[in-house]
Amino acid sequence: MAYPLAVDIGSGVTKLAWYSDPTKKKVEVADFPTAAAEFPGGVADDIYDPDAYGLVSYNGTLWAVGDETGSLFRPNQRVNSLSGSWAGSPGWTAILYAAIARAFPDGGAFEVLLSTGLPQAVYGAHRKAILDHLNCKHQFMVGKREYEVTMQANVMPQALAALLHEATGNAEVMNYQSAVVDIGTYTTGYAVLHNGRLQNWRSNGIEVGVSALTQALARWLDDEKGLKVDPAIMPEVMRSRSVMFRDERLDLTEIIGQLATQVAKPIEEALIAAWDHGANDIARVFISGGGAPLFEPAITRIVPHARLSADPGYAVVRGLLTFLD
């Protein structure tokens, strides 16, 4: 029996979804940072945790993945998850293996029915190579647990997966013209579905995401408040929309909204070029991804009938899992 597993290796966050019971009634989700670094010449035993999910070895190489990377390597020592050759690379593969270990922590030999996604802008050029890379037997270790995993893989655009998630509760999403704007850490993808088929000429991606807003907020705090915030805690600042300033908590909701409007300009321009007249011919437009709540006001300014996806942060990976049913 092959176990269904969905893994969305985003440019900033990796998310996974799987069924925790044989009846497929309960879906488990998890996430960790998309970060990886290779140890040069191995690693000393005194820092090798046999139970760690973020230490991956395969093909004679050893990798720190996720939170382990931040503990052991400087930012300039980590692999670049924004390069055109990222998907299918050794670091990308190590992250995929770490995700498998989180869903199936006991190790061993088994089959996985894998569903994964690619950004809309690179899907066509990379899909076949990714499938060739995945559809085989994979041997690796995570911590001290040994794995021998035979994969049957499917690859689809991340934005399309978000639309599939919406279709789970509303079949009309597949029967009419629907669209999604999927806002990730470093990139934003957008896609249009017409009668269940992807309209490639109205679907693409752009290298703007939450990271640009995070950087803009960090600059504002430094310039306006003289506050230099550790980059490691900026994700929490964005989530809470607040930060400690001296002895008080500073509410950042208003300034984040203002900065998001500025940062979203390239996204707006791309959507205006791809979707004429405010997307009035598209019945439903969803906003998904980890940056969806932050950029919703900017998107709805040019697409007034757009609305947040159900569970926007996990819409893509839930859609990837839905495809396997």
Rank of each mutant, 00 (worst) to 15 (best):
Q120L: 14
A101R: 01
A129R: 11
N154A: 14
N154E: 14
P157I: 08
A125P: 01
A161H: 03
L134R: 09
K144S: 15
S85C: 11
N154D: 14
N80R: 10
P119E: 08
D132I: 12
F110R: 05
S89P: 06
D132P: 07
T93I: 08
F73P: 03
D132V: 13
A87H: 13
W86N: 04
R127F: 05
L131I: 12
P157S: 11
L118Y: 01
N135F: 11
E148H: 06
V149I: 09
W92C: 03
F104Y: 14
E111H: 13
V155P: 01
S115G: 10
M151G: 01
W92F: 09
M156G: 05
S115M: 08
T116Q: 05
W92R: 02
S81I: 02
F140C: 03
G88L: 08
M151C: 12
T116S: 11
Q77G: 09
S115K: 00
Y97H: 06
R78T: 13
A153Y: 02
A125G: 09
V79A: 13
N135Q: 11
S71E: 15
L113V: 09
G117Y: 04
E111T: 13
A153C: 06
K128P: 00
S85G: 13
N135G: 09
G84L: 14
L82Y: 09
A98K: 02
M151H: 03
G124N: 13
R102P: 01
H126S: 15
D132L: 14
S71G: 15
A103F: 04
Y147I: 06
A103N: 03
W86H: 05
A161T: 04
V142I: 10
G88N: 07
D132H: 14
S83M: 08
H126F: 15
V155N: 03
E148V: 11
A87Y: 14
K137D: 10
A129I: 09
G88Y: 07
G143W: 04
R145T: 06
R74Q: 14
A101V: 05
W92Y: 11
R145C: 02
G117P: 01
L72T: 00
N135R: 10
M156N: 02
G84N: 15
A87T: 12
G143P: 01
A159G: 12
L131D: 07
A161V: 05
P105H: 09
F73D: 05
I130C: 05
F104K: 07
A109N: 10
A101Y: 02
H126R: 15
F73E: 05
A103V: 07
Q158P: 06
S81R: 04
F73N: 04
C136Q: 15
S81D: 07
W92G: 00
K137T: 15
